[in-house]
Nucleic acid binder design. Structure first.
Length: 341
DNA sequence: CAGTCGTGGCC
DNA sequence: TGGCCAAGACT
């Protein structure tokens, strides 16, 4: 990484990728037409951790309904959330709404400086740089998943790229390699290279404009870089749930306000030593994977006469569809109750 | 620093 | 098919 020609001559890097982008990059994406600060901000928030093909229809619908920042600032929460429905990471929608109100009512105009952009809710270092580049065609370094992968391979950077040490290196590279002009096309070039050439798997090195300078390519380590983060073994925990019916109703329990499935309704959960399990009959099992552990769930049909757990209520088949249930619990109930005559 | 937050696509 | 990943930010 110390010997790359690109570090001693950053303009060579910029010129190379910019020239490539003109002919081989993506230049017809919806947010590339009329790249106003508002349209760029909306697209960048939508694109956080979300693929381009997923975002496109959401972006179109959004712009039809909320064509400018004043419309968004004046919109109500329900409108905003409905337009976001299905995109995931809903904090982004709330932040975007907050951002519009902040810009319109507090700032009065859309910020230009990086440090001012960083004060906007939902806008971090990457998104601030992206807005600088795409909306203003001004200096705005970016490091996202694409740039991370590209730089790790190009400069042979070792180490898990999400660690702070590597992250620091990557941003230093981005700061140094980002030019003072052609920033819109330069930023797009980095993203396009990462997305269409320097892909996570099956990198297309033969059509890469940086091939001759690429450390990973020249040392045959394209598949080894960036360093994969060690996959942590997730423990498996057992969970015991009660299935208690009475007439046409099912007993559900509101979960605590913290921990997994906080504030949602669920089948009553009991400890494996619980008295209610003593003569219970196993009704079925299912598995659910969380980020930090795997749940082996057992659903038990206790003997009659078991006392109702605290905070529990009865729900019939119509009511159960209208309350917040964890996805696996809902799916269990649908399969074993609703669809069973 | 490590966990959290959604959903869909890919092999 | 399940594990990984996607234009990250926030706590």
């Amino acid at each position: 990484m110390l010997t790359s020609e690109y570090l001693t001559c950053p303009d060579l890097f910029a010129d190379t990728v910019v020239d490539w982008q003109k002919t081989d990059g993506r230049n017809a994406l919806p947010w590339q037409q009329d790249p106003s600060p508002y349209r760029v901000m909306v697209s960048e928030l939508m694109l956080q951790q979300t693929q381009v093909t997923t975002v496109i229809p959401y972006f179109q619908r959004w712009m039809q309904k909320l064509p400018d920042i004043h419309a968004l600032a004046a919109a109500d929460t329900d409108t905003v959330m409905a337009l976001w429905q299905g995109l995931g990471y809903y904090a982004r929608a709330r932040n975007l709404h907050k951002a519009a109100k902040y810009i319109v009512f507090d700032l009065g105009e859309f910020p230009f400086e990086l440090n001012d952009l960083l004060t906007i809710p939902g806008i971090g270092r990457y998104t601030a740089g992206a807005i600088r580049s795409f909306a203003y065609d001004a200096y705005g370094p970016i490091v996202d998943g694409n740039v991370r992968r590209l730089f790790c391979r190009l400069f042979g950077i070792e180490g898990v790229p999400t660690t702070s040490a590597v992250d620091k290196k990557l941003w230093a590279l981005a700061d140094a390699l980002t030019p003072k002009q052609n920033n819109r096309r330069f930023a797009q070039a980095l993203l396009d290279l990462g997305a269409t050439v320097c892909k996570p798997k099956q990198a297309d090195c033969l059509s890469c404009p940086l091939q001759t300078q690429c450390v990973a390519f020249n040392t045959g380590r394209v598949a080894e870089l960036p360093t994969a983060k060690p996959k942590k073994m997730t423990p498996t925990k057992a969970g015991h749930f009660l299935w208690i019916e009475q007439g046409d109703k099912l007993l559900l329990q509101k979960r605590p306000d913290s921990g997994i499935w906080a504030d949602l309704w669920s089948l009553p959960q009991v400890d494996e030593t619980a008295e209610s399990l003593l003569q219970a009959k196993l009704q079925g099992q299912f598995q659910h994977v969380f980020s930090h552990y795997k749940l082996d769930a057992s659903v038990w049909h206790p003997v009659s006469g078991v006392s109702e757990p605290a905070g529990s209520s009865w729900y019939n088949k119509e009511q159960v569809l209208e309350i917040g249930l964890p996805a696996p619990i809902r799916s269990w109930i649908e399969k074993n109750w609703l669809k069973k005559s």
